[in-house]
Design a protein around this nucleic acid. Structure first.
Lengths: 240, 240
DNA sequence: TCAAAAGTGTTGGAATTACACCCATGA
DNA sequence: TCATGGGTGTAATTCCAACACTTTTGA
């Protein structure tokens, strides 16, 4: 038997592999179903919101659940999450990142279902204009934490949502994710509100501005937003 | 149809669910295989090391791979990872945490395989005494980064290992994981070496000691380690 | 002219970094 | 006694938190 040296060169799939493929009995192992579930977060009206969909079928018919569904057999996990976001929220091209995989044997009463959870972030404009879609007749945004605390959710989706919140609160401080919750250009006050809403506490305006302007992640967009009062400078995120 | 109010009470599995279970056609969706792969890290001889196993079967026969295997249909993901660690490394009861799920359609040439990756940390004493085991006749620890850089690994296991390294480097600074790489009692120099080896750079001894002693996570174990020179105080981690 | 949001600096304390020598032990 | 790793303090700097008023605009 030709064993390969530990420090061998980059080898392509060997002849062994091809032979094995033909012999491989794919039915040998009982396989779980694999789904993706997506926590879509946005900020609207000064509050953090998450998209939930009312289940039209058992199990948990009539309860609220995260958008999600089965992963296609030739589809990557990321693609499945993106597809579900498109089908059930009508949203494309937004920030999306894998969160955690939930695989307790009894988390779905039907059969063994392993769910790879994702979280997505979008500016309110990107999502409030397009929901609902054909696949999700009854979809809505719940406010966090108020409505979430009262809502009974299907499966372990409440837990998934809470893990997503933990994650973005942690990441907010070292990764450029706040910008994903804003339109391309934004005012510093709007950016600060993102931080305040996600972290759940107020921040000092002067300290915040110094920090963010010295951080080198945003640049002056050269325009102003006019409201009913003093116009505010617009900034844009300088892609990392 | 009785739709549930958005803010309803915690409902148990409904009759709908039970009915549906009987009708549910589990074969409707083609299902991927699901595996776990475990990155077992340890520190030995002042270097970071990872356990790899030589594959006895195709695909990638003779190449080095992470310990891992299929998830049982009634087994949680965590349990599967723990089981593999036991079977292929003979190690139990060590720190284990989910890392990331790798699910590209072609990552395994046989069929669609989604791998939920874990990383595990153990003191050298815990693992070097027990490897190899029956299931993994050819297992060894490779040094990081030296041997890893030269090694050709099966599947996307190199990538998984690199993601694990990124993760522990990031977590080292805010989570108490360094202690997982040490025996129950340890000297401050040993603790510092863990940080240095994982981060790949030297640290100032005096600053390190002040920080760690004021951190409140360790306590004096009341003993000393005697070597060939001045004895060193032993400390223990005060479980968070 | 007034209401409302935009914009702007300073200061004190805390945390972080840089840096060099003496101590206790076993051989 | 000497080689080796164990153990300790201080000063400069940077970072962070607290704090209030003036400016610009549209109504």
């Amino acid at each position: 038997m030709a064993t390969r040296a530990p420090t061998g060169s980059q080898a392509s799939s060997s002849t062994d592999d091809a032979e094995f493929l033909q012999r491989y009995d794919a039915s040998k192992f009982e396989r779980p179903s694999v789904t993706v579930d997506v926590v879509l977060l946005t900020i609207q009206g000064g509050v953090l919101q998450a998209l939930v969909i009312k289940r039209a079928n058992p199990p948990h018919r009539g309860r609220w659940a995260l958008p999600g569904g089965f992963v296609g057999i030739d589809e990557s996990l990321d693609d499945a999450a993106r597809r579900k976001l498109d089908e059930e929220a009508g949203v494309r091209g937004i920030f999306l990142e894998q969160l955690y995989t939930f695989g307790e044997p009894r988390r779905d009463p039907r059969t063994r279902v392993i769910s790879v959870a994702y979280y997505a972030l979008a500016a309110a404009e990107r999502v409030h204009a397009v929901v609902p879609t054909p696949e999700a007749a009854d979809a809505r945004f719940i406010t966090i934490p108020d409505e979430l605390d009262k809502l009974s959710m299907a499966f372990d989706h409440r837990r998934i949502l809470e893990v997503a919140l933990e994650r973005i609160r942690g990441k907010l401080e070292y990764a450029p994710i706040a910008f994903q919750l804003l339109p391309r250009t934004f005012t510093l006050t709007e950016l600060q509100q993102v931080y305040e809403v996600v972290l759940g506490r107020g921040l000092d305006k002067r300290n915040f501005r110094v920090r963010v302007l010295e951080g080198g992640q945003i640049e002056d967009a050269g325009e102003v937003r006019r409201g009913s009062h003093r116009p505010a400078k617009l900034y844009r995120f300088t892609g990392k």
